[in-house]
Simulated scan of single mutants.
Amino acid sequence: MELDHIKSQNLILFEAISGSRSFGLATENSDTDIRGVYYLPKEDFFGLHYIPQISNETNDITYYEIGRLIELLQKNNPNILEILASPEDCILQKNPLMDLLKPEDFLSRLCKDTFAGYAVSQIKKAKGLNKKILNPIDKERKSILDFCYILQNQGSIPLKKWLKTFPYNGGQGGLLQEKCGLVNIDNTKGIFALFYNESGDLNYKGIIQHEEANQVSVSSVPKDEKPIAYLFCNLDAYSTYCKDYREYWKWVSERNEDRYNVNQHHGQNYDSKNMMHTIRLLQSCEQIFKTNSLNIRVENRDELLDIKAGNWPYEAVMEKAEALISSIEYYHSVSTLPEFPDLEKTTKVLIEIRENLY
């Protein structure tokens, strides 16, 4: 089923402009998002062709089947509650049956998890993004050799540096890691005795067998051989690096370059548009518990657009978010809202709507 079909068959119950325009945050560059509600013809609803929602390719136009809409309202889904709370000047069409759905019948203490919980997850992403922008990782991937150190006197030196500068047999040519042999030292973690065999006749395995190795190699070493050094391999640090490397370059490959360039231009090292909406979501959550109602049209447009423009330092945005979270915790603790929406009552409303439609 396509969008054109539900329109041509007059199946739409509700249609409204959503997103920045409904929040009162639209600028000349803002997209126009549409959210709507439809119902399935009787034969599809009772048959095997239930379609819960329909979107266009870019997801800026999405319609929800009335049953799916109420299911999500009962879960206090923020996006769906915001559809129900659409300002009058954003509503494009509305079937009178939609008046049976009142936001106050769905608002509950569950909003703390859905509104604030989602916002907190976005804050964690913002912190992760901040870390990525401030700590770029070279494309050339390090090997485990970069996390190995030679114990020396009361400290240590990087293995690679030590290999280059070690005057083996009085020479100045350094050592080759391929001719080294490592032996585990009992009762230690990550510390090895290091042996060297210039001729290669002892068949040492080297410190690593190839550049992509995820651990050092150990060798069989004759008992009469003497170690020339002791090596420490920081495997935990290497594992953390591999995780950070993988996440960083995955982010680079998937990031929205236009938005990234905007964020780089204002120099605040966070996704300013995303954080604007995160603050807005926290404010909506605070409002729900302060007033037992939801009004999505913001009262601090200039402040929020100032955040979007990157005029707030990262620390200031995080401080505002944390203050809102603390306020939400307080108002939630004294809220008179029910723990959950009344499922029986709201399901009866759905049944009443369907009976009228069919």
Score class of each variant (00 low, 15 high):
74 Q>W: 00
75 K>F: 02
76 N>H: 10
76 N>Q: 07
81 L>Q: 10
82 E>K: 06
86 S>N: 04
89 D>G: 03
92 L>Q: 15
96 P>N: 06
99 D>N: 14
100 L>D: 08
100 L>T: 05
101 L>N: 08
101 L>K: 06
101 L>M: 09
103 P>C: 11
105 D>M: 04
105 D>F: 05
106 F>Q: 04
107 L>K: 06
110 L>R: 15
112 K>N: 13
112 K>Q: 15
113 D>R: 12
115 F>R: 07
116 A>H: 04
118 Y>C: 05
120 V>C: 01
132 K>M: 14
133 I>H: 03
135 N>I: 08
136 P>T: 08
137 I>H: 01
140 E>T: 10
141 R>P: 04
142 K>Q: 13
145 L>P: 03
146 D>R: 12
148 C>Y: 04
149 Y>A: 02
149 Y>P: 02
156 S>Q: 13
156 S>L: 01
157 I>H: 04
160 K>W: 03
160 K>S: 09
160 K>C: 07
160 K>H: 05
162 W>P: 01
163 L>I: 02
165 T>S: 14
165 T>G: 08
169 N>S: 15
172 Q>R: 13
173 G>M: 10
174 G>C: 07
175 L>A: 07
177 Q>K: 01
178 E>W: 01
179 K>M: 07
180 C>A: 12
181 G>E: 12
185 I>R: 05
185 I>E: 06
185 I>P: 00
185 I>D: 03
186 D>R: 13
188 T>G: 13
